[in-house]
């Protein structure tokens, strides 16, 4: 069974977001997603400063047999990206909720209105699949 931590919110397309102490939003893919993709070999992150739309593709995660877009569930500006993923994409496999974070955004609207799933809701989405 996939790990679904309680301290963040989820999108149906298997991304997670959480608000950091400085108010920026951190984004990554879930344990379920990394498992489904298999060993990641490359992560394409956006440029810092790029504007992303809610539901827009903002990164690509690549395994040997698949490439998958990562969608931002919220609109905002990219303020930081995880530079370590360039050399060590496996961090997403090893620690999808920690060292495997992908980017940080300055959101244009509060998370509350973004239609995100609670941990329980996301867990039930996974269970029903």
């Amino acid at each position: 069974m996939s790990n679904v931590p309680q301290d963040r919110l989820y999108a149906r397309s298997h991304e997670w977001v959480r608000e950091l102490a400085d108010g920026t939003i951190e984004l990554g893919i879930t344990d379920h997603a990394q498992h489904a993709l298999g060993d990641l070999v490359f992560v394409e992150v956006p440029e810092v400063g790029r504007e992303v739309a809610a539901g827009g593709a903002c990164a690509v995660v690549e395994s040997v047999k698949a490439a998958s877009d990562v969608y931002s569930p919220i609109a905002g500006t990219v303020v930081a990206v995880n530079e370590q993923l360039a050399a060590a994409p496996e961090q997403i496999n090893q620690d999808p909720y920690g060292a495997g974070w992908i980017m940080r955004l300055k959101a244009t609207a509060p998370l509350a209105g973004a239609g995100l799933l609670s941990p329980a809701e996301y867990a039930s989405v996974l269970a029903s699949n």
Partner: peptide, 12 residues
């Protein structure tokens, strides 16, 4: 690097 190619990435 096959994820660049059409049989995996299709339209992209």
């Amino acid at each position: 690097l096959q994820a660049r190619e059409q049989h995996i990435r299709r339209g992209k």
